[in-house]
Simulated scan of single mutants.
Amino acid sequence: MYGQLLLLGIKGTELSSNEKHYLSRIQPGGFVLFGRNVESPEQVRALTDSLRDICDVPPIIAIDQEGGRVTRTKEIGNTPPSAEQLRIAGKPESLAWHGIQTGQLLSLLGINMNLAPVLDIAYESDTDNALRGRCYGRDAQEVINNAGVYNRNLRRMKTLTCGKHFPSCGLADVDPHHKLPTSHKTKEELLASDLLPYTALWPEMNGILTAHTHFSELDPETPGLPASLSYNVVTRLLREQLGYNGLIMTDDLDMGAIINTYGRGTDVQMAIKAGNDMALICHQTDTAEKALEALNELSLFDVQASLKRVRKVKKKLPKFPAFDQKRWDKVDEEIMELRIEVLGEEAARGDQNDSIANSRSPVEDY
């Protein structure tokens, strides 16, 4: 039962016999796919079907398919424009098509949740904090407008969505994949800016993902505590003050911001006690059983609300059509048409890597 509080990565393009064994025993709430899991469209669909087969309860199968540098399918298809490229183009219809195409693509692959949209505000475009190119606006209203169009059209395709990274990574001074960023924004400053996209859009989303950033003004008595593990941030701010009662997930607990400080087991316990409903373990997948052992130490009182919210979201999981290569090819062609519309013919048909020069972030390579 407590396995429903875990969202796990897997190692390769198909399940090994060992993975089938321990995942069948854990019965996780879901899975997260990355580039390492992608070899061909047919292979991904076979993989997601096999993940459903080993689960007694239908799993969430999630992916980071944002467009631009964070496109997990870039090796098997065209890369959609990034949030920044769509923002600059300034065409709501392009944002809508991006959402529709992404939903169609994920449906063919058997993926039911996109860990998007990014709701962070792009304050400083040159900071190497993993967000460059991934934000929909330079102020709260621009994020609301652009991310809202994308999110609504993605959900039209029955794909579940999850806004990130609460409460904000926009002013992070370092990349949480490497170490913990710190923000000195006050609650009042956050309420006036960074939190507005969440309060405006969460009625239209299926979840919120919490950030590995320390907010010194929100946790003055616990220096270095990430927001994702903070009761003050997740429960007191998001749940109690702002009134959010939907699904909350942590960002990947295998990031340097967490794993460099907290041991596996302690981290998942802290995540759930802080108010998160699901803990993400994306890369150190061999530690999943240890994580479950730690969760089993929690009382039913600690987890019953989270289990209820996970069940509620799973009632919305869509059914999938059979994989259709012709349909895949058509959607892939339409993504190129969108690239041309947003970037121009020459740029669209050129290098689709969309990596950020001098970036040290692994986010685009996962």
Rank of each mutant, 00 (worst) to 15 (best):
F320R: 08
L171P: 03
A200I: 05
Y22V: 12
R236C: 09
G263L: 05
Y231V: 05
P197F: 07
R52A: 04
S50R: 10
L109D: 03
E341D: 15
Q101P: 00
L8V: 14
R264S: 06
L131I: 04
H214Q: 11
I272A: 04
A192W: 00
P167K: 14
E204T: 10
G256F: 04
K187W: 05
A211I: 09
L195A: 05
E364W: 14
K316L: 15
F320N: 07
C282W: 04
V44M: 00
M157W: 00
A279D: 09
I60G: 10
Y231P: 09
A305N: 11
D219S: 07
V32Q: 04
L307V: 03
K164W: 02
A46G: 11
W202Q: 04
F301L: 11
V57L: 01
F301G: 08
C169P: 00
K314H: 13
K315M: 14
I111C: 07
V32W: 03
N206S: 15
E142L: 10
G275W: 05
V310G: 12
P197D: 04
L343H: 09
T71H: 11
K312D: 11
S361N: 09
C55S: 15
S82Q: 10
S230P: 07
S361Y: 12
A89D: 05
D139S: 02
L119Y: 01
V303W: 09
N245D: 14
D277R: 10
Y244T: 00
Y136Q: 02
W97T: 10
R236Y: 08
D252A: 15
K179P: 01
R134N: 04
S17H: 13
T266S: 12
A294R: 03
Y262A: 03
V174R: 04
Y136L: 01
G133L: 06
S228F: 03
W97D: 14
